[in-house]
Nucleic acid binder design. Sequence first.
DNA 1: TCGGTAGTTCGAAATTAATCGAACTACCGA
DNA 2: TCGGTAGTTCGATTAATTTCGAACTACCGA
Lengths: 104, 104
Amino acid sequence: MRAMRHPRPEDIELARVLHALSDPVRLDVVRQLDREGEATCAALDCGRPKSSMSHHFRVLRDAGVLRTRTDGTTHMNELRRAELDSLFPGLLQAVLTAPERGAA
Amino acid sequence: MRAMRHPRPEDIELARVLHALSDPVRLDVVRQLDREGEATCAALDCGRPKSSMSHHFRVLRDAGVLRTRTDGTTHMNELRRAELDSLFPGLLQAVLTAPERGAA
DNA sequence: TCGGTAGTTCGAAATTAATCGAACTACCGA
DNA sequence: TCGGTAGTTCGATTAATTTCGAACTACCGA
């Protein structure tokens, strides 16, 4: 497992973050991380194969949405809440609070 | 000019909205609309040809981010602020407040 | 040291999206 | 009715994304 890129706060771009959050699978991952604090990749599979999930984690990681920490043989993921809140106040909150689709 | 689809509030999806906002050109359009209230398509061209802008407006419209009103020969665009605020509280605010990229 | 487990990377196919010129449609005003 | 203006639609091209199996790497424990 190679070095994981985690962008520095000053390199986190709004458009990139929004793009990372614009996928249902990834949105689901982010919601779960919000509820559970942190989780391994395996715990968050959405019925998809590992390689697909790995891709989605990478998109989220590259965008700066989450941080992945290697812990032995597992990878622990957690939201970069503090950084995101500081860079884009209210954004994460709004996304996490929002329903998936407009209420009827 | 054919009928323009404007999704009903209950059909507006978070992921779709986020995707619509995840493009720099469209983000710029949204910011301008925020500042200026409403504007024609031509007034918001970002140096792109009309057909490109028309595409971006459609993405924003289809996602439910803005409403396009035909006014004679021009099209007036405005954010669907009330609906968005009601469906996804704080989201638009956060996106509009945020810097394009994290402050250094 | 030999599995086994966790997750990444590679490769390839299929889908979706962005871009832009050119042709088109609608409407206003002279 | 004849431009002209505003913007959409079409078509084609290119680029980016998603998806997933298969192979790979790293590390732990027996």
